[in-house]
Design a binder for these strands. Structure first.
Length: 509
RNA sequence: GGGCUCGUAGCUCAGCCAGGUAGAGCGACGGGCUUUUAACCCGUCGGUCGCGGGUUCAAAUCCCGUCGAGCCCGCCA
């Protein structure tokens, strides 16, 4: 079977929209070039890694899956730019961090105490844990370790030897002339520990002589410094044998780092640059693009705690990379609806989003939010409630067990207030004579075996009988149970609470 | 100055790559049932496909131009 068989399977499913999914289009393109691929991603851990950053990784993962499903081999590599200098003291950093500006992130202490080995790890670790939850398999490389272990040595030497050629390309492509004493290699100063302040004065085949703005003059081996970004990126492609890389549109601008990278790859190092996937930014509704530097951010960690992984991935995968995403945390419930609907249609974006062997039942997330609150988040209780309206089999049980937790966290973190309720232990409201009469009569007529629909109907019947407005009747019911005058659909709600309990409660008013 | 993306129903978007005279969801409106956790069902309304040219028997779709919106070109994805 192999390739052709696999391909046909997905033809039929994705044909629902009569359009091939972007990840499949890219995968097909890649497979025309070869059947083994390595997809690179890279994020600088200079601050909280956020939802916007995540887009790059999820795109890479989706493409990897598409390539594999079509019979190719692929893996995702994540290079953390841990050797980049701290550009400036960000607003979230303590004042004393001023002194670390210019030093590599891997050489600076954890900004929040001793919890991690260094600055970079502090932001990197939680992100990597989140990726694990998202079911994204990748090879993690840390730039500082790559440099320190000598993986870059040859490429640094070549860059220094061909310094003029690189300068020429930079000028031709970007239109910017580099300074006379420019060098593609930035030594790490032994004295001030900064990686962006030393000028290269000369080099041999093991290292470079430099003079730093701090006054120090010395010699750095090719393991004690890094290449400037535009060259670093290209060297990385070559060292790691990268065939494909998603990157933000900033790098894609004409004369930007991808453009110069293409020429440096071909003319300096002599290899074919990777297949580019340019993607747009994720905007926070009403706020603008997410920027670590501006503090406009939804940290990946928060997201992963409150939303099932497939939903997070779906938000990104259903949208073509080149389109920007308007992310509105308050509207997430609609995304759940859409996802559940797409799940039933076996939508391609859903296939690419699902982690492992997760199977959905017919219980909607919306429903779980209500049931969970009634059951006070107790799984068995929730299942018991559900069993009144669903056939609870193993699939439902397993699904509810997993998603109930998310329903709870989502409710706490993102849900609008009007979806939240709490069953009062004791009646906690004032009632008019009319309301009392209604509740008592209603309680008397309520019978154990009534269906939710029947109960709902009964509200109207009793209200009519007593000449009470239905709206008043419902309000009385919610006041007696929740202490508010609105709540979940009454019939179903009462059934879920247990007829006996409700009868008793209403008689007490 | 250069580049990218977008402009299709009130809103969010699909359709464009491989042209065949417009789709979905939501909303609105009407009804099923005289508000009940964004309840469900049925139905209706709703678009000069930003604008102007060109190619074609045929253009939302291809080409050229133009306007508008957003964004990127200091290593901020």
């Amino acid at each position: 079977m192999g390739l052709v068989g696999t391909r046909n399977v997905f033809k039929t499913t994705s044909d629902f929209s009569s359009m091939t999914h972007w990840a499949d289009v890219i995968a097909e393109d890649l497979l025309k070039r070869g059947d083994k691929h390595r997809i690179a991603t890279g994020i600088t851990p200079s601050g909280h890694i956020h939802f916007g950053n995540l887009r790059e990784i999820i795109i890479a993962d989706a493409v990897r899956r598409a390539v594999e499903e079509k019979g190719g081999k692929a893996e995702v590599v994540y290079v953390a730019d841990t050797f980049d200098p701290l550009r400036r003291r960000y607003p979230f950093l303590p004042e004393e961090f001023e002194k670390y500006v210019g030093m590599p992130l891997s050489e600076i202490p954890d900004p929040e105490g001793e919890c991690h080995e260094n600055y970079a790890e502090h932001f990197l670790q939680p992100f990597l844990e989140s990726l694990d939850v998202l079911g994204i398999d990748l090879v993690v490389k840390r730039a500082d370790q790559m440099y320190k272990s000598g993986e870059y040595e040859n490429h640094i030497r070549v860059a220094l030897e061909k310094r003029d050629k690189i300068a020429e390309i930079l000028k031709e492509v970007s239109g910017r002339e580099v300074e006379k004493d420019w060098s593609p290699f930035n030594p790490l100063c032994k004295n001030c520990k900064r990686i962006n302040s030393a000028k290269v004065k000369g080099f041999d085949d093991k290292g470079a002589y430099y003079s730093c703005s701090c006054g120090y003059e010395g010699y750095a081996s090719f393991r004690e410094g890094k290449l400037t970004w535009r060259v670093d990126w290209v060297a990385r492609w070559d060292i790691l044998r990268i065939t494909c890389e998603p990157f933000g549109k900033d790098h894609a601008a004409a004369g930007g780092s991808y453009d110069t990278g293409v020429r440096i790859a071909k003319e300096v190092y002599g290899f074919e640059p990777p297949y580019p996937i340019v993607y747009e930014w994720i905007h926070l509704k009403g706020v603008g693009a997410m920027k670590s530097s501006k503090g406009i951010v939804v940290p990946v960690k928060d997201l992963v705690e409150a939303l099932p992984p497939e939903i997070i991935k779906y938000i990104i995968i259903r949208t073509k990379p080149e389109r920007h995403i308007e992310f509105d945390p308050s509207m997430i419930l609609e995304v759940f609806d859409e996802f559940e609907d797409a799940y039933r249609r076996k939508d391609r974006s859903v296939q690419l989003s699902i982690v492992g062997d997760v199977v959905y039942s017919d219980v909607s997330f919306r429903h779980l939010v209500v049931v969970g609150q009634i059951a006070n988040w107790d799984l068995e209780k929730a299942l018991e409630i559900l069993s009144r309206t669903y056939h609870v089999d193993d699939t439902v049980r397993k699904d509810v067990e997993r998603r109930l937790i998310y329903a709870k966290r989502w409710l706490e973190k993102f849900a609008p207030e009007n979806l939240k309720f709490e069953i009062k232990k004791e009646i906690d409201a004032e009632f008019s004579e009319e309301e009392r009469r209604f509740l008592r009569t209603f309680a008397e007529k309520l019978e154990e075996n009534m269906s939710p629909e029947r109960i709902h109907q009964l509200v109207y019947e009793v209200a009519r009988e007593l000449n009470v407005k239905p709206a008043k009747a419902f309000q009385a019911i919610y006041k007696a149970i929740l202490g508010k005058n609105y709540g979940p659909r009454a019939g179903y709600f009462i059934k879920s609470l247990g007829i006996e309990w409700v009868k008793k409660r209403f008689k007490k008013v």
